[in-house]
Amino acid sequence: MTTKTIAGQEHRFRAFQISERDLALLAALAGFARERLPSLLPQLHEQFAPWPEIAKALSQPQVHERRLAHWIRLASGDFGEGFTESARSLATAFHEHGVPIYAVVICHGIVVNALIAELGLDQRRLTSLSGRWRRTRLDTGIATRAALSKAAQFDLELLLETYALVEQDRRDATRRQIEAFEGTVRDVVSAVGSGAVKVESLAATMEAVVGETSAQAFKAVRTADDASSNVSNVAAPRRCRRCRRRLARRSRRSNASSPSSARSAGSPRSSPPASTSSGLRRRRSPAARIRPRWARRRMPMRSAS
């Protein structure tokens, strides 16, 4: 709903000097308007050829129906209840179909001139009514033409004012839509910003978790290194003792195979004693090592020379 109030009919009647006689003269044209206008308005479409935007809009059924109903009321002087709504309906149809506001003036001029010509109220015909015996008819024709012109001006002003109100309503509706869209965009941006903050916080938390996990892994690696070092330290003495035992055995074997030990052992054919006071095991010759067990049992081993 618009906040601007359209001036009342009585103020317009005074502004355009529309009298009761004018309304009566227009009411006498009601039959003519209902019968002739439905065919007259389509015939006038070719006169709008220089203005394609007007001709295109007037050819639309929705626009034509509202325009015809409004012009019937206008030519009949039916300015009572519902006339303002009819003007608003026609102005809305013009605005919705892209008819510019100057088209309203052009449309009124063409239709009014056509009505005057159809009613025989043009200047040429009125001049032909001169004469004393045609004075009454001439006066009626002049008054009817004046009443029709006043009604057209009255309706033109109403349509222009209504057209401006329709445009204002459309601008207000567009502004509300834009404001609603901006509010939606702000909400979306706010939600995205909040989501970004949450993501940033989550990323920081994940970074802290990763850092803590890395620290724990580093500690675990150090603990494993320390445990490995301890195992190595414990196993080192055992390896050292084994090494010393091996060296001692090698030393004893080398001493047993030396020439001095062979001379002290007697002749080569004599059998070595079964055991010695030192408790050393008898060293076998390399040949005895590769002999099979049955040969070792039958043949006595020779001492190393």
Rank of each mutant, 00 (worst) to 15 (best):
V99S: 08
R284Y: 01
R88N: 03
S305C: 13
R145K: 15
T3S: 10
F94D: 02
T174D: 15
R263M: 05
V99M: 14
A217E: 08
V105S: 12
L41I: 14
E81F: 07
A236G: 06
H70Y: 14
N230T: 14
R222P: 00
P61H: 12
R249A: 13
R67V: 01
V231H: 05
A227L: 13
L41Y: 07
L40N: 04
I72G: 01
S128N: 09
G279I: 07
E212D: 14
W133L: 15
A15C: 04
D22F: 11
R244F: 05
L129D: 03
I290N: 06
P100M: 05
G279V: 11
R186F: 01
E46W: 05
M301H: 07
I6Y: 05
G98L: 06
A146E: 09
A180C: 02
E53K: 09
V104E: 04
E46L: 11
W51L: 09
D155G: 04
G120N: 04
S254H: 08
I6E: 06
L74P: 01
L119W: 08
G193N: 06
R263N: 07
Q216G: 02
T276A: 10
V234D: 08
T127I: 11
R12L: 15
D226Q: 15
I110P: 00
H45I: 01
V63M: 11
K150E: 03
T136L: 10
G195W: 00
W294I: 10
S39A: 15
F32C: 07
R176I: 06
P237E: 12
A236S: 12
V210G: 02
E200S: 09
A151L: 04
R132P: 00
E96L: 09
V63A: 07
G98A: 08
R186P: 00
